[in-house]
Every structure is written in C-alpha cells, then in structure tokens.
Computed example of a mutant assay.
Amino acid sequence: MRGASWPDVQAVLFDLDGTLIDSAPELGAAADRMRVARGMSSLPLSAYRPMAGAGARGMLGVAFGLRPEDAQFAELREEFFKTYEALMFDGSVAFSGVDALIARLVDRRMPWGVVTNKSSRFTEPLTASMPLFETAAAIVSGDTTPHAKPHPAPLLEAARRIGVDPARCVYVGDDQRDIVAGKAAGMRTVAVAYGYLGADADVTQWQADAVISLPLDLLQWLPLA
C-alpha cells in the first residue's frame, strides 16, 4: 500500500551501518577479541548487535561496561579501531533488499548518497570494496565536516555535493540521532525498523516523517518517475 508520496524529493541520503550494511559481526568480533585477550569470557554476537549502531562507544560499552567519560575509554577506543580495521572486510554485507532499492533509485535517476558518523579511515576503504557504492553521488564521513551527527553539517555537505536543495532530500537512518540531524538539516526523515535497534528502541517516538520495515518500503514515499 502506497503512502502519501513526496513528489518534490530529488535525492536520498542514507546512514551506513544498520541502514545500508550489516557490519555488526565485524564490530562485535573486534570488541570480543579485545575482551578475550584480557582473559574474559567471549560474548555472543547477540549481545553486541543491538549496540552496533553506536560504533566504538557501543561495542566497548558491551564488552567492558565502559563509557566515553571513563579514563580508559580513549586508549581502548584506539585499540578497538585498529582491531576492527583488520576485520572490517571479513563479511560486511548489505541488508536484504538494499541492493534492489539502490538499483531502483538508479533506474529512476534519483541521486543518492551516504552520511555516516564512521570515520573516513574506515568509510572510504569499506565503501570502495563494495560494488553497491559505485553509484553513490556523495559519501560523507563523521570527520568530513567539523561536526558529526546529530549536527546537520554532514547532511548539508552531502546535499551540497549532490547539488540538491536539502529541503528536497530524504535522510534515512536507524538511530534517533539520524532523525534529529535530518530534521535540523530541513530534510524529510525516514526511520528504519530493522538494523541494530535495541530492545528499548521505539522508532515511533523519534518523530520521523515515515517509518519503514524493509528497504524497498522506501519507494512508496518517492516519486514514481
């Protein structure tokens, strides 16, 4: 069933991890490797997955109960980055339906791009290794602009690179900060009810303009031509 489509939309921007690709196995494996190296018991992927969208902060929180303000956090974060860097090509894949969604956007000649808080240190080699991103008109990382999401700066930079008015862009993400950033940038926002949502997440409370359960559901909100 079609929703009330947005006929003025000219571009679609996506979050990366948890929205387009499933990198939870590699993120979890990196944190768990650090945990086991310290003589602690291994945790299952199911323990890490709900927090995968929070990157190092989430993984170190699960593995060690650490918070960013803790004294050890900065040191362990860099160790996590190095460990993940060695694992990130081991199996990150697009969520089911994402390849078909991107193909449909390309068929409609609708430009699309990525705005992620992931550092370019990881974003650039990872997206370069996946054919999915060959048609992306812009890829903006967490360190591309002076601010990361939920600040709107990276989203506005992506719109600038694509050459589309932010008001005619849609931003799609799996975290509340994605919706906050999209609204601050003046874009329409779509929350995905898949990905890395934790048990306590309620996407209906994020005040997104739309919620989708499958990647291809996004098409109902976009112009047909």
Rank of each mutant, 00 (worst) to 15 (best):
R2A: 14
Q10C: 11
L16R: 01
G18T: 01
D22N: 11
D22L: 08
A24C: 10
A24G: 13
P25N: 11
P25V: 05
E26M: 09
A29N: 03
A30I: 00
A30C: 06
R35V: 07
V36W: 06
V36R: 13
M40I: 00
S42E: 11
S42C: 13
L43W: 02
L45F: 12
A47K: 08
Y48D: 06
F64N: 10
P68I: 09
D70M: 06
Q72Y: 02
Q72W: 03
A74N: 09
R77N: 14
E78C: 07
E79Y: 02
M88R: 12
G91K: 00
F95N: 13
D99F: 05
L105D: 07
R108Q: 15
R108L: 15
R109L: 15
W112F: 10
V115S: 08
V115Q: 01
R121I: 11
L126D: 03
M130P: 04
L132Q: 13
L132N: 08
A138G: 07
A138L: 10
A138Y: 01
S141Y: 01
T145L: 01
P152K: 04
A153G: 14
P154A: 12
L155W: 03
L156Q: 05
A159Q: 06
R161L: 15
P166D: 10
A167H: 08
Y171N: 14
V172C: 12
G173H: 06
R177H: 07
A185C: 11
M187L: 14
M187V: 14
A191L: 04
Y194L: 08
A201M: 08
D202N: 14
D202L: 08
D209G: 08
A210I: 00
I212T: 04
L214D: 05
P223Y: 08
L224N: 13
